[in-house]
């Protein structure tokens, strides 16, 4: 902007306005996110069963974390999920967004695409649990009608995690597409016109114009979906509960199990802190790598 020409008074006024603009959200942030999180961090240095006073144990929970094979397993399972979920979901969503932009601006089609996301989580999980049931599920009936062996899906240690990834892609792809579609609308069409006059083909325009100009939104989508998929929980809570055996015991389920099944809040928050550190690192790298603070319009 034009800061260089602004006198200092104006700069101070701008800062003052900025803080006034930020103030309400800052209150919300402090009261409902920051303070409880700090309390959570403190909790990780204690043994707390929720009901009796917490006992300070120093770094004991962290020492335990580093030798906890189940935690390592949970990390692996989570990473496996994220690596299946994110690339497929993002590509699919981008494809749908571009197609919506090109072929149809119909609200109906957009409505259909977000339908899965309109359904409550519980219902999504239950409906898929049923459609994918090994004996009575509709999908298996089709598979058998086509002459193949029926599949256990959520019931086998090999297929459970990919199946959960597929369910969540189904749920979120349309929604992600809507976000990206909204981002596509901010790209000035004149740029495409100019490029097409210069003889660029569709492919060149996609990689040369769409992707770079979509960057702020794309970064937003990637950052939020990656954070979200590291916190995959709902679908697992209803369909597999971490099983069969421990095939879908992701980090978030592991945290939940310690907090509300085993009532070991201290250790649960320790795992939470570890997950938090991992996510911060990933996000920080992403923001740096994508240079998220600017779009190529600048």
């Amino acid at each position: 902007m034009t800061t260089h020409r602004q006198p200092r008074l104006a700069a101070r006024r701008e800062a003052l306005y900025a803080w006034a603009f930020v103030a309400p959200s800052l209150i919300g942030f402090l009261v409902f996110f920051a303070v409880p999180s700090v309390r959570g961090l403190l909790m990780s240095f204690t043994n707390w069963d929720l009901l009796r006073p917490a006992k300070f144990v120093g770094l004991a929970n962290y020492v335990r974390l580093f030798s906890d094979a189940d935690f390592l397993h949970a990390l692996k399972v989570t990473a496996y999920y994220v690596l299946m979920n994110i690339p497929i979901q993002t590509t699919l969503a981008l494809g749908i967004a571009v197609m919506m932009d090109k072929f149809s601006k119909s609200t109906i089609i957009r409505g259909i695409l977000v339908l899965p996301w309109l359904l409550p989580n519980i219902v999504v999980a239950l409906i898929w649990l049923w459609l994918l049931d090994p004996t009575m599920g509709f999908l298996n009936q089709i598979i058998m009608a086509l002459g193949f062996q029926r599949q256990p899906f959520l019931g086998s240690t090999d297929q459970a995690m990919p199946t959960i990834a597929a369910i969540n892609i189904w749920r979120h792809a349309g929604y992600t597409a809507i976000l990206l579609y909204a981002g596509l609308q901010t790209i000035p069409k004149e740029i495409y016109e100019a490029a097409s006059i210069d003889g660029a083909n569709e492919r060149q325009m996609f990689f040369g114009i769409t992707i770079p100009l979509l960057r702020p939104v794309l970064v937003f989508v990637l950052v939020t979906t990656i954070i979200g998929s590291f916190q995959i929980f709902d679908t697992i809570a209803i369909t597999t509960k971490g099983g069969p055996v421990d095939a879908t015991r992701v980090v978030y389920w592991y945290i939940y199990e310690y907090a509300f099944v085993r009532f070991k809040m201290g250790y649960a928050t320790t795992i939470s802190v570890a997950l938090f550190v991992i996510l911060i690192t990933i996000t920080f790298i992403q923001m740096r790598y994508f240079n998220a603070n600017s779009s190529d319009l600048d």
């Binding site: 701008e14 942030f29 309390r39 959570g40 978030y252 939470s272």
Partner: peptide, 29 residues
């Protein structure tokens, strides 16, 4: 759009709130 000291740090702090597992904030809240 606006320039003020601590802007980017504060924004990153906001972002980090997304990464706090809900289990942690649920009971205090």
């Amino acid at each position: 759009r606006l320039r003020f000291p601590g802007r980017d740090q504060l924004f990153f702090l906001y972002l980090t709130a997304m990464m706090i597992p809900g289990v942690v904030t649920l009971i205090p809240n």
